[in-house]
Amino acid sequence: MTLSDRQASIDYILEKGLLTRDSALDKARMLIRRLGLRLMFGDGPLVIVFAALALGITALVAGCAPVEWRHSVAVGCSPIAFLVIANVSEAVDRASRVYDIRQTCYFTVAQVTAVRVMCLGAVGVFVTALVAGLAATSAGDFLHLLLLAVAALSMCAAAQLMIVGRRHRLALSVGLTVVWVGLGLGLPLVLGLFWEQLLASLSWVVAVTVCVVCAALVVWRAIRMLTESRYHAFA
């Protein structure tokens, strides 16, 4: 670098000021502080009603299902509450054409979505633990079930965030919920005990790999949405 180049760079920086961007973590923290849980999950009774319904059904199915079907139940049931809550709050967020105003505010709809899915995912792990606990027969069985359930949950979280980051895809993400419930019910019905045995014989290495890959995908996508690196407003 020549001396004049150097001086030109210094002048440029002094003129512009140093433009520092908030990191994704800073932004997420600020978003949670400003909005709080209430506003983040669609302020209103709708989300609460759906959440209660989904959790109730999950607990009922996990508690009542026959022991020999416990793996199918863990995989099929544990993400349902997550999917229902995520989609209902998303729908509330995008309803009544508030979207345009929201999208021009400091925190965009997509950024709220990113933080919400991460929070829901974290809470979802407890729900899966509950499901696994209700269905398990022993401590070792519990761990295996938990791994399977968390893998299922992280797959759903990754798919949800990939899909719903963009504007016109709410229908698609509602579709995801329907497909998941359909598969959760359909596969055991169609494949019978073969499906159950397949899940039961799945090694923990596979389950952990799925968890890690999907969690990484969620975090990567959330960081992009929060730092607006290319998708900025996700309009």
Binding site: L19, D22, K27, G44, A95, S96, R97, V98, Y99, D100, I101, T104, C105, Y106, F107, T108, E228, H232, A233
Partner: peptide, 20 residues
């Protein structure tokens, strides 16, 4: 991005709101 939106105020033509 956000630093522009933080100095922006916008009223859309057909502006939506939560009725309740």
């Amino acid at each position: 991005g956000a630093s522009y939106r933080s100095i922006l105020g916008y009223l859309p033509q057909d502006f939506g709101y939560y009725k309740n």
